[in-house]
Design a protein around this nucleic acid. Sequence first.
DNA 1: CGTACTTTTGAAGTGCCTCAACGGTAGTGG
DNA 2: CCACTACCGTTGAGGCACTTCAAAAGTACG
Lengths: 245, 245
Amino acid sequence: MVEANPLILKLAHSGALTREDHRPLAELCKGARVVEAGTVLVRQGDRIDGVHLVLDGFAYRYKVLANGRRQIIGILLPGDFNDLQGSILGASDHSTATLTNCCVVWLPQETVDALTLVNNRIARALWWATLVDQRILRSWLTNMGQLSADVCLAHFCCEHLARLQMVGRAGPDTCDMPLYQEQLGDILGISDVHANRMVRELRARNLLEIRSRVLTVPDVLKLQTFCKFDPSYLRSKPVEIGPSK
Amino acid sequence: MVEANPLILKLAHSGALTREDHRPLAELCKGARVVEAGTVLVRQGDRIDGVHLVLDGFAYRYKVLANGRRQIIGILLPGDFNDLQGSILGASDHSTATLTNCCVVWLPQETVDALTLVNNRIARALWWATLVDQRILRSWLTNMGQLSADVCLAHFCCEHLARLQMVGRAGPDTCDMPLYQEQLGDILGISDVHANRMVRELRARNLLEIRSRVLTVPDVLKLQTFCKFDPSYLRSKPVEIGPSK
DNA sequence: CGTACTTTTGAAGTGCCTCAACGGTAGTGG
DNA sequence: CCACTACCGTTGAGGCACTTCAAAAGTACG
């Protein structure tokens, strides 16, 4: 049977873990609770003294500006931490909420500190996860600044599919994507109306299909070519291909 | 005499350091070399096995896309690391180059690891610096996605001034800002022509002045109000005001 | 079979882009 | 001391991507 724990599946991609590290990581996931869709886990300005870890379902992070506009700054998939080490900064600069029903663990800072202190490989793997998050953010910024909305949307879909594949939660050309078009717009920095037009455009070009919260890609290579998607930024080594078996 | 080492000045804001940590940090800065303006320190795709630390001057990080377009993803000021712990990921996803003549230290990964291993406060301060970098990135993404170009430019100027003040390299209402308008455009995700119009607009409104690589703000509070700038995201505690004394 | 929500469509407006030229300024060499 | 050069900033005009407002059509659920 394959490993089902998304955290272990994800961190395995860091190349930093050995088999004996699996047990302490699995221990971390013990106190999971179920959270309903639409629950706000962390509110902008909240004091932070621990970290949320998503084990199942989808969540997202967003900032709300003074003018009421909202920017989504990240999607949390199974295996993702909300804001690792965020407690150092005292208060959160953004909110986090669930998109679907989620299975979430809350870890007090001391638990994380204790684990990383005694296990350097896990500490390294967590740094790796933080760096990948940073890369995703830099990629979002670059795409938003330099690409047209259709390419940007295609790129997001490629990334979303690839990330889910890394934790064994996606087929070769399909995955869950529980985002309304308004939320897609808040990711790409465009209006919901325009997001709709871009989704429809990519659908008409037979590049992808988003229907009832599921993304389907008829030809993954064709979509990747269209938006020049290069999955290497999600992985440790640039060339190493082949996610979960 | 005030502390002149920008690294120490910066990390002092983390609240994690004691006076005895100053010495090992000062030691880090020993092997500095002078680098000419326009030098590429790290190239997209380069293997990473250490980190650059800027002690004087300005540098920037950027990504170049397949279509030739460029997005600037960060400005390095004195006291800033290029990509802390980046060696975990093997290769860089972006390039780094100097804007001005710079004083730069290159630290092999082992040096950083050795220091953080024996000094938890410094390890914590470095995490803090990484988290602040993340916040800046999230702020850029949010602003680019949700604000008009003029407000976005004003916000960048506020941030730039505030960051320089934190390392004692700026007056109360003026600082160096060695960016051409084309580069300002690459930061904000707009064309150089439009960047010019925005600079001129803010100048006409008497909100700021950018001339011969120097930013001057006639009324800092007025500019901050205009773009709803809240410096708390650059600091550890939300309310704590008053940078270096 | 109504209610609430999401997606789709239309139409008019605007922010930003591209192309292209002109102006300012500082450095360089005759 | 004055061209000349190179580079950056400024300006204008036309076009397109994206926005806003508003309404209709589809979908899920009780």
